[in-house]
Design a protein around this nucleic acid. Sequence first.
DNA 1: TGACTCCGTTCCATTTCAAGACTCATATAG
DNA 2: CTATATGAGTCTTGAAATGGAACGGAGTCA
Lengths: 159, 159
Amino acid sequence: MRWKELSSQTCSLARTLAVIGDRWTLLVLREAFLRVRRFDDFQKRLGIARRVLTERLALLVEEGVLEKRPYQDRPVRHEYRLTQKGLDLYPALIALVHWGDKHYAGEDGPPLIHTHMACGQDFTPVTTCSECGEPVDPRDVRVRVNPALLAGRDDESAA
Amino acid sequence: MRWKELSSQTCSLARTLAVIGDRWTLLVLREAFLRVRRFDDFQKRLGIARRVLTERLALLVEEGVLEKRPYQDRPVRHEYRLTQKGLDLYPALIALVHWGDKHYAGEDGPPLIHTHMACGQDFTPVTTCSECGEPVDPRDVRVRVNPALLAGRDDESAA
DNA sequence: TGACTCCGTTCCATTTCAAGACTCATATAG
DNA sequence: CTATATGAGTCTTGAAATGGAACGGAGTCA
């Protein structure tokens, strides 16, 4: 299966990965969440090949995850900002970071500390159920194919 | 930056990606969460090259995300199961799936529906603050370098 | 004028990947 | 006992992605 074919799968995970599931893309997004916005800043901070960065940014813009807007004329310069769709990736990003913190941080603790300004405290992310508000344990989740899509296929896909 | 070098970064996201940030790895894990356990099942369901699958499974086992255990002798056959560390990836996985559902599902809705057995309802994941329990908006989060690690470096990294 | 900045492009050698054939040990069918 | 099947890989080979470094161009600074 070629990478591009992923996006044609029914599975939402596959579709997501087709957009952001690249080695570099998530690191680019990390920087974006840290408020990096310019080509050269991304490039320097990540040490990514310029050609690859150009490509990734273009894809993210095309997908509507980032938005390219001029921040000055003459010479026209653009910055790349997260759109709402991009901001929606935050739960995924922070969950990945949290996993790394939990399993790979040394005894001094995680590299970064996150503060929730709404309550003023340092926090870790907790995935809860939209319905009952309780934390979700994967063993308590059952999955079924959306009946509306059963008009033909009998595959499942997606976790 | 080579792929392997990622794991030597301070950033938790980079370290996480060094383990699971591969095109195929997350799809393998998706299947694992769907209770797929055998080499050939992974292979057939994903259409992944056998060599790549061998490699990915070996890495996941080495990292302690999956556990390889025999389920029969003569011929010895193994199955790959998620460890607790693997189960800990659930929040990240489901966040990625949810993003795909939200932004790429057609009008019939997402491919899969998740039911939270604890409360009996279909749900979507919500990322909340471990301290106040409220949903987290990325704009409400500030990040700072863990002071315990400041003995030298002044980099930030990690979203 | 010459140096410098930002944002890309182009080129090439190296690495990684995908596909599919091949291996090998054990089972089962006929 | 021969043929076929299954699980779990390994090998080969050509295609694609990557890293690195140089190049370009538009405009500013001094």
